[in-house]
Amino acid sequence: MKRKALLGKKVGMTRLVDKTGEVIPVTIVELGPCYVTQVKTDASDGYNAIQIGFGPATRLNSPEKGHLRNLPMLRHLREVATEDSCSYTVGQVLDVTVFSEGELVDVIGTSKGKGFAGGVKRHHFRGGPKTHGQSDRERAVGSIGSTSTPGRVWKGLRGPGHMGSERVTTLNLTVARVDAERNLIAIRGALPGPAGGLVMVRNAVKVA
């Protein structure tokens, strides 16, 4: 499968208004320019992929410096599996213009961290009754198992725990506008992660 992908930084949300007054909610992403930092082919690595890099880095360690020989200091590197990796060359610059208005894309980001969250917030548990003599039951998880058989809690049982800060992919979003001059792209709808967070935008992979 041929894929194209770019790394970028989420800027925030605003709206686009067309001439008829129709409003489109969009998220602005500062997308690229990205550099091709490595080309992997069947012959060299057993599979086809390119590695792309984005963003200025202030400090790199020696192995990173060696890897990015003759390239600018890049902060983020990601691999994109694509059939046509041999059509890319190391050092090639990719910018927002690889995407066009109306195209469907997937956006991959890291969701906002919610810390240690209870069952109601994390798994949409219903909690307990608020009235009829209840105390401490309003957001309780309820029963977590039976008694001496099995005498323990089943593995994998949903409960409170750390929530957020995980990789999230939002599928099939529409590109609303591309601003090549400012390296910005407006994508319809919300994207995972905080403003300023790293996101990867790729062409949609699950289009019917």
Partner: peptide, 13 residues
């Protein structure tokens, strides 16, 4: 950051 959010509706009166 904010100026990247502006300028998206230039034809708006």
């Amino acid at each position: 950051m904010t100026d990247k959010l502006s300028g998206w509706n230039p034809e708006l009166n």
